[in-house]
């Protein structure tokens, strides 16, 4: 069905797109990017791969099902909202931040919004792959 060049390109593109999407996700808080964009990119990686090798093989090559991606995403998003009420900082969905010192001197800020964004990322990835897989199987 697909040409060889496309096949090879798509197979190689998948890991690149995934890594790229994670970078986009991470930098989204300060620069262009974020969970939605990253999610679409990751989803596209999976979809391209499935187009090249067929959905059946694509499904097999993934240990986590698209539906689980979505569930996990929603779970992350919800959990991130529960930090504040349970730690007594504020209401549901209020951001909670903490700073982690890294061994080489610098520090990174971690907060529940990042977790939330990761949830969005996972959910969008899952949605796109599950929709496209289902349609391509028809």
């Amino acid at each position: 069905m697909a040409s060889e060049i496309f096949k090879i390109a798509a197979v190689q593109l998948r890991p690149i797109l995934l890594v790229l999407s994670l970078i986009v996700l991470y930098r989204g808080h300060n620069e262009p990017g974020g969970g939605f964009i990253g999610g679409i990119m990751a989803g596209m990686g999976f979809v391209l791969y499935a187009m090249a090798v067929g959905v059946e093989k694509a499904r097999k090559s993934r240990t986590i099902k698209p539906v689980s991606f979505m569930g996990l995403g929603l779970f992350f998003a919800l959990i991130s909202g529960l930090f504040a009420p349970f730690s007594g900082v504020g209401l549901f969905m209020q951001g909670v931040w903490t700073e982690i010192e890294l061994p080489w001197g610098s520090a990174i800020k971690l907060g529940t919004p990042l977790l939330f964004d990761a949830g969005v990322y996972l959910l969008v990835t899952g949605m796109i792959t599950s929709i496209m897989y289902a349609i391509m199987e028809e």
């Binding site: 939605f36 679409i40 969008v124 949605m127 796109i128 929709i131 289902a134 349609i135």
Partner: peptide
């Protein structure tokens, strides 16, 4: 931004 992603979902749904 959210509307865009949702409209993708909705369009896919209506297509199907």
């Amino acid at each position: 931004l959210t509307a865009l992603v949702i409209s993708l979902g909705v369009t896919a749904f209506s297509l199907v």
